[in-house]
Amino acid sequence: MSPKTSNQIAISMLYVIASTIVVILAALLGYIIISGLPAISWHFLTSPARAFTSGGGVGIQLFNSFYLLILTMLISFPIALGAGIYLNEYAKQNWVTALVRSAIEILSSLPSVVVGLFGFLIFVVQFGFGFSILSGAFALTFFNLPLLTRSIEEALAAVPDAQREGGLALGLSKWETVLHIIVPAALPAILTGVILSAGRIFGEAAALIFTAGQSAPALNFTDWNPFNMASPLNPMRPAETLAVHIWKINSEGIMPDAKAISSGASAVLVISVLGFNLLARFVGHRLFKRLTAG
C-alpha cells in the first residue's frame, strides 16, 4: 500500500470515529431536551413538587441545587486554592508531596456513592448534622476538592517562570509575587476550572442521596432568616436537589405525570450544565482577552 492510500484510510477512520462520538452526543442531548421541553414552563420551574397529584414542579429542587452549589464552592474553593498554591509554588518535590499528589488522584477516582456513604457516616451521623444542605455541601467538597485542586495547580503551573522572576526581581516577597502576579495571571484558567467543576456538582446525585436527603420540605421564599426552618437559606434543612429528584421520581414516583416531570427536570439539568460549560468558555475567554490584549 502506498503511503498516500494508508494516509487516506487513516484519515477516514478518524473521521468515522469522531463523527460517531458527535452523533451519539447529539442524539442523547437532543432526545433529553426534545422530550423534556414540552414539560418546561414558568409554573414548572417555580412551583413545589407534588407527591400524589399531577401538576407539580421542580422549583424547590432547582433552588436547592443552586444553593448547594454555592455552599460547596464557598467551602471547597478556598481549600483548593490554598492546596493548589502550596503544591505548585511552595512544595518541594519529595516523597511527601508525591504522596499528597497520589492521594489527590485516588480521591478523584472514588465512586461518588462511596463519597456519599462516607459523608453519611461522618457528617449526618457522627457530627449530627442530619440530612441537610450542610452535610451535602461537605460531601460534595470531598467529591470536588481533588479535581478543583488539580485544575488550579495546573492553571498556576501554566504561568511562565519569567513572571515569578519578574516579581521577585522587583523586590516582592514570594507571597506577594504569588498573590499579586501569579494568581491574577492564572485567573482565567482557574475560573474555567471552577465553572466546569460547578457543572459536575450540579449534576451529582449519588453523593447527595445519603447526605442532603431525598425530601424537599416546603420553603417560604419571603423568609430570608437562615435560622428559620422554612427559610430557603437555612443550611440545616434537608434538601433534595434536581438530580436526586430525577433519580427518585424514576425509582419510586407515584404521581400521574411522573414521566413528564422526570423528562422536564432532566432537560433543565442538562441545559444548566450546558450553560455552565458555555459560561466557562465565555468568561475564561473574555478574562484572557482582557488580560492579554486590552
Partner: peptide, 22 residues
C-alpha cells in the same frame, strides 16, 4: 533585607516578562 536589596539593584531579563496587566 532582600526586598530592599532588589529595589536598589533591579533586573531585566532575556525574555521580556511584563505582567499580564495594563
Amino acid at each position: 533585607d532582600l526586598v530592599t536589596l532588589r529595589k536598589e539593584i533591579g533586573m531585566v531579563f532575556q525574555q521580556p516578562n511584563p505582567f499580564p496587566f495594563s
